[in-house]
Computed example of a mutant assay.
Amino acid sequence: MTLNPGTDLRSDALSEIRINTPAVERRAATLPARRSLKRDHQAAWLLNAVRCIDLTTLAGDDTPDRVARLCAKARQPIAPELLEAMGVSGLTTGAVCVYPTMIAPAKRALGNSGIPVASVATGFPAGLMPLNLRLAEVLYAVEHGADEIDIVITRAHVLRGEWTALYDELRAMREACGSAKMKAILATGDLKSLENVARASHVAMQAGADWIKTSTGKEAVNATLPVSLVMCRAIRDYRDQTGHVVGFKPAGGLRTAKDALNWQVLMAEELGRDWLRPELFRIGASSLLGDIERQISHYVTGRYAAAHRQAIA
């Protein structure tokens, strides 16, 4: 996946965006039933979800040792005896996501595994810091080796319709990221309407976001299927208009294997199978992996393992 170069801001088109909320909600409600995934197919889709997870720790008491344990789980996310029984090898998560000060411990723990390190930045989760300080945090993350930067937008720009200000802010962040890929967190639970979600999605992509991401995981409402549907259709429109391909990351609230299946069905239905790979689809999660491993254990052994047997870190 190449970096999204972005485009000039097309503010005139933003005012034309209209969302039929009842239609979006009806479509989202039918998505989980659109594909019947049983036995072998379900297990395969669950393993695919694992390779698309950004395994995350964003706790106030994070330490290098905690991060090292998380990285060990990222390198071996499913018990080796389960993978051996399925004839699978080399499975890892899509990335490990940490705070900027934990980048160096994560890089050491991951070694030459090839697993990217993602770092939140720009005053995560609220983003209510002066822009120069937010950009300094991006530069700090890049200097310490982050491969991907999860930035947060200023929600007030969206709520006030200040699209040029939002674009300029995101463009500056894109430049600060350099060769690192940028995920733009829209904090959709704070944006009040699906029209605002769609407009913010387009501005983020025009400014050069490589992924657009639903949430920080700290809002009262995080990833939902209706919001995700609107964002995926914005990605499709952007690709059709520019030829540039942008990824999608739902985060916050995805906790069960069923959630992992539902969001993959959304990607397949709305964007196609190309988006069922970690280059274009990530799931921001921590507890999700434990439930997926429990379902994989049931598939292999016919029994559900106790949740404490699938510790994630």
Rank of each mutant, 00 (worst) to 15 (best):
T224M: 02
N4S: 02
R155H: 01
A285I: 08
L131C: 06
L225A: 10
K213C: 04
V24C: 04
A187M: 15
G284S: 04
L276V: 05
V96L: 06
V98T: 03
T164P: 00
H157V: 08
A311D: 13
T242F: 01
R303H: 14
E175L: 05
A257S: 13
R69M: 02
G111T: 03
W45E: 15
M182A: 09
P125T: 14
H308W: 05
D62V: 07
F124I: 04
R35T: 04
L135E: 14
N48M: 07
G114T: 04
R155W: 00
W163P: 11
R255Y: 08
E269R: 03
T7Q: 02
K192F: 14
Q76I: 00
A207K: 04
V203K: 01
A251F: 00
R51C: 02
A33I: 08
M1L: 12
L133S: 02
E16P: 04
R75A: 06
R75S: 04
V88W: 06
E195Y: 05
S89I: 00
S201W: 10
G178M: 07
A141D: 09
Y238W: 03
D274P: 10
A146R: 06
G161E: 14
T56E: 03
C177G: 03
D65Q: 07
A268Q: 15
L261Q: 11
T92Q: 11
A118F: 05
T57S: 13
S228W: 13
R171W: 06
M231T: 11
K181S: 12
I296C: 07
S179E: 11
A85E: 15
V152T: 00
E169I: 12
W211E: 12
L194N: 08
P5D: 04
A204G: 13
M173F: 11
Q206D: 01
D54K: 07
L9H: 08
R134V: 02
S113W: 05
L82Q: 13
G290I: 06
Q42K: 12
T92Y: 01
I292N: 09
L288R: 04
I235W: 03
A23L: 09
V67E: 01
